[in-house]
Design a protein around this nucleic acid. Structure first.
Lengths: 209, 209
DNA sequence: TTTCATCTACTGGTTTTTCGGTATTTTTTA
DNA sequence: TAAAAAATACCGAAAAACCAGTAGATGAAA
């Protein structure tokens, strides 16, 4: 097998250099480029085949998330590993949902990086130890008690998320609009929110939609 | 190292038996129990230490998601691997967020199961090949073009998600309520939705919140 | 069987959103 | 620097949501 053609994308040139040095002696990959923003990377990808991208999420021009999507859409054979300092679970999950094959914190050991690269190029998704902990740690949302919804309430909640009015919902469920109104108000109370907009946001955060 | 004390939870007794047979000859684990619902499992866990749980998501009494959370909260040393037929990405992501160490489809090979078990008990998160594909595949939402929002619109979108009214927002941003109104209407147009409730739902699905 | 949760429905009034326009100023970008 | 995009602001009317409170019917569990 040929060496993995690898590029590094980070807005700190020092990080790029550091990684290059660290990976210099790896015999299964070769760093063939380093870029400090997304535009540069994309125009490089247009002309050169790349097997592996070590990508930071915070870039000056295009966000790492968007970049992931774009790369995966246009160059689906390329593997993306995120190297970042962000420890928020939502960011990690988003990068994975956007096609990244793994997520490491920048303080990961070279050994972890090696392992993740090896795992990622064979099609797995790989996280560094610390990242696994973050992912598995319950969210604040999950800690604070999720309101207990009745069947009807769940039903009406999902209708509301579809932008339906009380009238609409009442018609579909053969109820009085006033009843639907009551349910909506109970939902708003249970979630301790101000209106339906916030209700939908809260329900989404607690993965009820 | 002692053998991994393993239990299987599935509402189909056949699956339990099948897995038991398959895993009989593994020398690093021992199946010490099989349950067909969540309540049975939980009361067993109260009395017996368990290292590994092979868990189905669809159970008659408690959902696999909830079960994951409960187990991780009370018996954090126990590793959970999900064995399921559900191929929806959201379900997979949710089980992981709830503390599962991996997700396999029921048609996975014994080899994949072995690998995932090995990987999971050392603290990694592991998916079977097919599951990796599901996770990495872009969502429909991501395929249909995400509306291009201006800075102001993003700002007002997030305020709306907090349940603020036009008046509130106008005050905070030192704008006329009428201006905020216009922005809100533009947002609703861009997302092609009927009202703010649906707007928030759509924005959430496209990970803009 | 009684109690509790849920579902249903109402009154009446206030606030907010939504719809369909228009229009000026500021900022960006080609 | 001209054109395009974004941000600002307005009007009026209708629709819908929100608030506060009440209350009968139903069904499940203790």
């Amino acid at each position: 097998m040929n060496k993995l053609r690898t590029v590094i994308v980070d807005d700190h040139p020092i990080v790029i250099e550091g990684l290059k040095t660290l990976l210099k002696n790896e015999d299964n990959l070769e760093v063939i480029g380093g870029f400090s923003n997304g535009t540069q990377l994309l125009s490089y990808l247009e002309r050169n085949p790349v097997d592996l991208i070590l990508l930071d999420v915070t870039l000056p021009d295009i966000g790492g998330m968007e970049l992931c999507q774009i790369i995966k859409a246009q160059f689906s054979a390329t593997t993306i590993l995120i190297l970042s300092n962000h420890t928020e679970r939502s960011i990690i999950m988003q990068t994975i949902q956007n096609g990244a094959s793994g997520y490491l914190l920048k303080n990961s050991s070279l050994d972890e990086l090696r392992q993740c690269i090896a795992s990622a190029v064979t099609g797995n998704i790989c996280y560094s130890k610390e990242v696994v902990e973050i992912i598995s740690r319950p969210t604040k949302n999950q800690l604070r008690n999720t309101p207990q919804l009745t069947r009807r309430e769940k039903q009406i909640l999902s209708f509301l998320a579809e932008g339906k009015t009380s009238q609409n919902i009442a018609q579909e469920l053969f109820l009085s609009p006033l009843t639907v109104d009551t349910h909506r108000r109970n939902l708003i109370q249970k979630f301790e929110v101000k209106n339906v907009a916030e209700l939908i946001a809260a329900a989404h955060q607690q993965q009820l939609l």
